[in-house]
Design a protein around this nucleic acid. Structure first.
Lengths: 224, 224
DNA sequence: TCTATAAATGACCGCCCGTCATCTACCACC
DNA sequence: GGTGGTAGATGACGGGCGGTCATTTATAGA
């Protein structure tokens, strides 16, 4: 790790320190989980006082929002890199899910994004975040469209819908206790049946099928 | 409103009081929203001391979990009642969404179910809740299967998947600020595009299509 | 070397969840 | 109708959190 001055005075140094804090937040989140994620302990892990955190982030939720955006970007990069020039729907669906699961904390953050995180952030920050997310997904859609032989518009729609489905499916994984020893077998089956993996892949393919069908059928706009 | 004794001694009286508290919780949630939902104010609204709430519920999250289950039951009843003997996929998808939106607080509760609510509840309560939800959905699947001309298994799968999709789509609506006056037009469009209504209906139909197709095709089990 | 600036600090505030010693409404029994 | 014991109701309290701000002090530039 590169040395850091005790005071970050230049803009570059400030960005570096902000990145350090985000890095610590990622580790902290991985270690203690959401419920125990506190600003005091984050400060301790990042090696700064609690008050310092509030020089770089508005609120606790602002930290998590920034972390989510970073993770989303990382996911986009992974998707770009690992999607071959010609891809199938099934493989794409599987990759969509696999890469999202591979990004530590991405799905947990996503599960809490709208319901929790976005509720304690200033309006300008929220607006900037929304724009950033939209740009990221739009970019990805433009790049992946030819590889899946879809029009860019349909590709973007697909990413949006698959995102929603993934979010819904991932909620189940956000629950507690999956690994607790004393859970009755029938309950474990209930939880497992909701497991995001197969549920997502099966139905992502169905949706892509539907999108392809609609794309071939409708020549212009879509019905009311 | 029927009169209540100051002390609930019989089991029936206790259930009545519990129901009263849940009722107050529903109103409280509607009035102040999630962030401001506190046990102190709930007690005030229900006309009992804060400590009394903890005689009927383990934690704040236990209140919300119980409220969710009640709302889910109400949704199921509405679905049973309003689904005609022979239904189309499109109409069913629309009703699925409409009835869920009609149940006040159902979608917001659902959005926070796994990520927040279930994390502060004892294991037995969680297990009981999971069983209850499973039974509710299973029941509904059995009743709706003939009306949609689907095998019961496929119907249950459909309900599960549509539930996940609805949850994902509803997350977007759980965000803040949709009605704030000073949101740039482009950001408003981003939020609107994610709007759950059309996104859900379109893709629910696609999924139902896929399920029907798979049901007709595969005679026995499904592939690996 | 010295000084002005602004980054860093952590004690402090208000709020909230959940507990528990205490109080008292109610029922059963005489 | 009076009375004692049970158990439901209470709310002051503890612990911990997010967020603030007067104070401290590292650092760049003169």
């Amino acid at each position: 790790m590169t040395a850091r001055p005790q005071r970050a005075r230049s803009t570059a140094q400030k960005q570096l320190r902000r990145a350090d804090i985000l890095d610590a937040a990622d580790r902290h989140l991985t270690e203690v989980g959401f419920e125990a994620f506190s600003m005091a302990s984050l400060g301790r892990l990042a090696g700064v006082a609690k008050g310092t955190l509030y020089l770089y982030f508005e609120t606790r939720e602002d930290v998590l929002l920034a972390l989510f955006i970073a993770k989303l970007d990382a996911w986009r990069s992974a998707m770009e890199e690992h999607t071959p020039a010609r891809d199938t729907d099934a493989a794409f669906a599987q990759r969509f899910h696999a890469e999202a699961s591979a990004q530590a904390n991405l799905l947990p953050l996503m599960a809490r994004l709208d319901s929790v995180i976005e509720h304690n952030v200033t309006l300008p920050t929220l607006i900037a975040a929304k724009r950033r997310m939209d740009a990221t997904l739009r970019d990805l859609a433009g790049i992946l469209a030819p590889r899946l032989a879809l029009p860019p518009g349909a590709m973007l729609e697909a990413i949006h819908v698959l995102g929603a489905l993934l979010l819904g499916a991932a909620q189940m994984d956000a629950g507690p206790c999956l690994d607790s020893p004393d859970i009755p077998r029938d309950v474990r089956q209930i939880v497992t049946r909701f497991s995001s993996d197969e549920l997502f892949t099966r139905n992502a393919v169905r949706i892509l099928d539907g999108i392809r069908h609609d794309t071939h059928t409708e020549t212009g706009d879509h019905a009311t």
